[in-house]
Amino acid sequence: MRFRPLGVFAVFYLAFLYAPILLLPIFAFNDGTVIAFPLRGFTFGWFAQLGEIPALHSATLNSLIIASSTAVLSTCLGLFAARAATRYRFPLKGGIMGFIMLPLVLPEVIVAISLLVVLMQLGLNTSVFTIILGHTLLCMPFAIAILQGSFSGLDQSLEEAAMDLGETRSGAFRLVILPLVVPGIIASLLICFIISLDEFIIAFFLSGNEPTLPVYLWGLMRFPAQLPVVMALGTVLVGLSIVLLLVANWFRKRGLRKAGQEDTGGFL
């Protein structure tokens, strides 16, 4: 095997990428209140503590409600937008799609404060509902990107063939298009769920007195004594994200296989 500087660099780079989330469980299971080496010993104690904080439970509930609603809402909106983008030509298409995808690059702070200012101006209270709206805005571009992948892989004549063979427009969508994009829909739901679950800025600005998990975590971070608990909670969140991500990726690949396409790798 030849020595490959690029390969070595790639391995180091991966190590750099994974360093934080690999350290996380190490300290979460470390039997010491100080987050530093050397390690003290193994404990489940910090995880056990998670079960004893009522505020954490309500934050978890908020997060789950927000993440599921966001996932459903942004995937529904994304379905329409992705379908329009791949199937039809309409005036100002580039501008409209670009505008809808804008939250992908806009600094979240800008999105968050502009929403906040409007809500305040309308005299509305920030709540779980307002976070759902904000998160949907943020997740929609991701949903569109994923669903566009599923839609654009479809030959347009598939739908025409179904209609040619006696199906109506809706029948063609139901019998041909939908089965082929279902894996994409599931992947989109999961990804939006993950993003919403982990999102901090918008939740922080719009949560009022109904914190989500990350907002609650942010509060904990100020107290050095709570750091091991932060680590434990972080481990749970990161673990959950990775599991959901693996499931989403499995569905995405299955969708590609079903449509007889090559895997071009990754979301986005």
Binding site: C76, L77, G78, F80, A81, R83, A84, A85, R87, Y88, R89, F90, P91, K93, I96, M97, F99, I100, L102, P103, I110, V111, I113, S114, L115, V117, V118, Q121, L133, G134, T136, L137, M140, I144
Partner: peptide
């Protein structure tokens, strides 16, 4: 507009209206 264009605009409208209400209006407000 052609039929294609009309269907396209109708299909994209839910997402577009949402983005206008929650992005364009707030940005304009600030």
């Amino acid at each position: 507009l052609s039929r294609d264009a009309r269907l396209g605009l109708i299909t994209v409208s839910p997402a577009l209206v949402f983005a206008v209400l929650l992005l364009a209006v707030p940005l304009f407000t600030i």
